[in-house]
Amino acid sequence: MHSLPLSEFRANVSAMLDLVEQGETVRILRHGKPVAELVPVVEKAADPVHVPSWKRPFEPLISLPAGYSAVKALLDEREQSPL
């Protein structure tokens, strides 16, 4: 990991980005205290663990017969409800 003051980072942005591109981490200091880190981007595989749940495919809870709409099923269910 490379640590450098903000003024030095500003003067050498391109070189620092080259280091990050090669896999290095660059820590930027302001008044001697760390304020930021530049880290390489890690490409996540398209494996289901990294895919949000709302993007994952799912199986319907019930399957409707052909020609029977979900709205019709909802209305039928409401009519059959004891409430």
Rank of each mutant, 00 (worst) to 15 (best):
F58Q: 08
I62H: 03
E8N: 11
P5A: 06
L19H: 15
K33M: 07
L64E: 01
G23A: 04
L19C: 13
H50N: 15
V20D: 00
A15V: 09
P52E: 04
H31G: 09
K72S: 03
V26W: 08
F9N: 09
S53E: 14
E24H: 09
E21R: 14
P52G: 01
V35D: 06
V26P: 15
R30C: 11
L83A: 12
A11S: 11
Q22E: 08
E43P: 10
A11E: 10
T25R: 15
R78T: 07
S69K: 03
P40I: 03
V42I: 14
P52S: 05
M1K: 12
L75R: 09
D18A: 15
A66Y: 07
V42D: 10
V51P: 10
P65L: 04
H31T: 10
L29N: 08
S7W: 07
A36S: 13
E79Q: 11
F58W: 07
V20Y: 01
P48D: 09
L38K: 06
P5D: 15
M16R: 12
G23V: 05
K72M: 01
S81E: 06
A15L: 09
P48A: 14
P60Q: 05
P48S: 12
A15D: 13
L64M: 06
V42T: 14
S3E: 14
N12R: 15
E37L: 07
E8P: 04
L38C: 01
V39T: 11
L4F: 00
M16P: 11
P52A: 02
Q80R: 14
S69D: 07
L29Y: 06
L75W: 02
T25S: 15
V13F: 03
S3Y: 00
S7M: 11
P40V: 00
D47H: 12
L29W: 10
A45N: 15
T25V: 06
D76H: 00
V49F: 13
A73R: 13
F9E: 10
L6K: 04
R56H: 01
K55H: 13
S53L: 12
P57F: 02
V51A: 01
G32L: 09
L38E: 02
P82Y: 03
V35E: 12
K33N: 05
L74F: 05
A66W: 03
A70Y: 03
W54E: 09
K33I: 04
L61T: 12
P34W: 02
V35L: 03
N12C: 08
Q80K: 12
A70D: 05
P57L: 10
E43C: 11
D76G: 02
V42G: 06
K44F: 14
P48V: 11
S63H: 09
H31Q: 14
A45C: 10
P5K: 07
E59R: 14
N12W: 04
V39H: 00
E59Q: 13
S3K: 10
S3Q: 14
P52R: 03
A45D: 15
N12D: 12
P57G: 10
E77V: 03
S14A: 14
L75I: 09
V42W: 07
L75A: 05
S3L: 11
S69E: 05
